[in-house]
Amino acid sequence: MPEPNAWLLDLGHSMRAAIGSRELVQIVENPVLHAVPLTPDHARHVLIWQKHLVPVISLSMRVAALAADHSLVALVAYQEVGHHVPKLGAAFLASPPRRIEVSDAQATAQDDCLADWKGLAISCFEREGELVPVLHLNRLFRGNR
């Protein structure tokens, strides 16, 4: 039987996205969030996790200008090009993530799906009649700096 190899994230507002199974570090319920002034609408908060400062992103705000619920976040790890130590980021979730199995057969070359996610998706796949983007975490947390 195939092993689950991805996490399906519920971002609220009927928005879903996936990340690799090894990219999810922890789910944090009712996180202690710190607002940082003069930051983009989708990246207003940080949390402190094991002495690390972690930016928390609202993907629904980033992609569709829709506010996210702040009661659950997914802590994720990603690798920056040229860096060996993984970096941490977080994203607001509307409900706990689900482990899923994604196969190559589900991959789809839907340009519309990628375009909707404004360059934040590395690919898309089809699941239960829905197109699900796979998040490009490095691009998401790299910002415009």
């Binding site: 710190h34 002034p37 003069l38 983009p40 940080v46 980021g89 910002g143 415009n144």
Partner: peptide
Amino acid sequence: SFEIPACMYVAQSPISGLRMVEEGLAC
């Protein structure tokens, strides 16, 4: 002790970094 994360960076911001103090996070 913390840089502003890249995804939160805004060029015009006067905040150069973040630090924990007794009361919480400070700019």
